[in-house]
């Protein structure tokens, strides 16, 4: 199963490193990364493969939320299909 990690908030040094650090910690493979900075707002989406994830999806998602809270960003992990079904026919 593939999921999308989305990160939105104020730009700062080390966001990508910290998010991919958590992925690495739980054996989650990063497939693709896209990011933009609009004025001061940083937006990044990361497509990840969670088939090899060493913990339950909910725990991985909670860890990402925790990381987000600790650095003042909104980080969410959502199943890829929610975006595919809304934007692809």
């Amino acid at each position: 199963m593939r999921a999308v990690v989305s990160v939105i908030g104020k730009d700062m040094v080390g966001i990508l490193a910290k998010v991919s650090g958590v992925c690495c910690e739980y054996n989650v493979n990063v497939i693709d990364v896209t990011q933009t900075v609009l004025q001061d707002v940083f937006a990044m989406t990361m497509l990840v493969d969670i088939n090899g994830c060493t913990v339950e999806f909910s725990e991985f998602s909670a860890k990402m939320n925790e990381l987000g809270e600790s650095i003042g960003l909104s980080i969410r992990v959502m199943h890829e299909d929610i975006f595919n079904s809304m934007h692809r026919i």
């Binding site: 999308v4 989305s6 939105i8 693709d32 896209t34 990011q35 933009t36 937006a43 989406t45 497509l47 909104s74 969410r76 959502m78 890829e80 929610i82 975006f83 595919n84 809304m86 934007h87």
Partner: peptide, 16 residues
């Protein structure tokens, strides 16, 4: 590959 603006649109719909 999904487009970043599509992803942000979906998230915005849910959150805001």
């Amino acid at each position: 590959m999904l487009n970043i603006s599509d992803i942000l649109e979906t998230i915005n719909m849910i959150q805001e």
